[in-house]
């Protein structure tokens, strides 16, 4: 059972992810924007970060870069509505562990999180 930081400016998406993750007995902390996400990562040391890309203020790619600067070993699963293969390539090149698209499918989220935990 892991501690997972969910970063998404959508309360609906954070709620959906919380429901999926808590059903698998994970401990969930939330951040509604990039700056809060970076603070919480520093304070809470989660095992995995689930990160949206299109957010107000600091966008997901910038958050990913900052997290990697803070902790090169950070495990980030990008969870976004952007389904493009080109976006997937960009985030993986920036160091994300994997990529899942919205709308969320429980099994896909849990597989991605479990894979990140095993890395």
């Amino acid at each position: 059972m892991a501690k997972i930081l969910v970063v998404d400016d959508s309360a609906l998406s954070r709620r959906m992810l919380r429901s999926i993750l808590e059903s698998a007995a994970h401990n969930v902390i939330e951040a509604a924007d990039g700056m809060i996400a970076i603070e919480k990562y520093f304070l809470e040391k989660p095992d995995v970060v689930l990160l949206d890309l299109i957010m107000r203020g600091m966008v997901g790619i910038e958050v990913l870069k900052k997290l990697r600067q803070m902790d090169p070993q950070v495990k980030v699963v990008v969870a976004t509505a952007d389904i493009q293969a080109s976006t997937q390539m960009i985030v993986l090149e920036e160091g994300a562990t994997s990529f899942v698209s919205k709308p969320f499918v429980s099994e896909q989220i849990l597989i991605a999180v479990n894979s990140a935990l095993e890395v």
């Binding site: 509505a81 493009q84 080109s86 976006t87």
Partner: peptide
């Protein structure tokens, strides 16, 4: 807020297909 997110998901689903099939980044 939920409706905005629904719109985000649906519009990205549509335009993302354009990007994937046409090999352009949107």
């Amino acid at each position: 807020e939920a409706l905005t997110e629904v719109g985000n998901i649906l519009l990205n689903a549509c335009l993302g297909v354009f990007g994937n099939l046409l090999k352009v980044h949107v």
